[in-house]
Amino acid sequence: MSMRSLIATALVVSLADLAAAEGPGLGAPLAADEIPFYATYVMPDGRGLPAGSGTAAEGAGIYAAKCALCHGATGVEGPVMPPVGPNDVWAKPAGRYWPYATTIFDYVRRAMPLDEPKSLSDAEAYALTAFILSRNGVIGEGDAMSAQTLPDVVMPNRENFVDVWATQGVTPW
């Protein structure tokens, strides 16, 4: 191949690249070990749940020490969005209203307590999830929550939601 045809070929290739990508393509390769857990979310089917487990009994002590100040001594008092319902403060308590129990685990692990997020171990987050679910009567007091059991928890309000995006897209409800 002559130098001229080499240059011509290179030009065609680079133009083709430009057509495919509108940007300069400056994204650096992202390795799996560079991605912190909170850049993903535990899915309702359980994908993303880590190893470990916890029970309501274990969660009770953690709740009393780290959660009760904002959410109330037994989880119904609040004032901040009590997770146990029904209560007089918040119509959408996490352990009763939310459609999937996996959300409780993920949210506790990434965001709670408010002043010290990401300080809880996976086992502690499982135990708190079990405590909240148990206080709402969704699981038994002795049921351990883990990657195996949490996705099978059927939340009482799950079938009570209409998906507005699926039914009417961007049109405001």
Binding site: Y41, V42, M43, P44, M81, A91, K92, P93, A94, Y97, W98, P99, Y100, T102, T103, D106, Y107, A111, N157, N160, F161, V162, D163, V164, W165, A166, V170, T171, P172, W173
Partner: peptide, 27 residues
Amino acid sequence: AHTKDESGEYTEILADGSSVKFTFAMG
């Protein structure tokens, strides 16, 4: 993913007790 904000914080309970989720656009 049904995150906290799309499960409870930003879903709306209707008059009949059911709820709407993924109500994205502002009226």
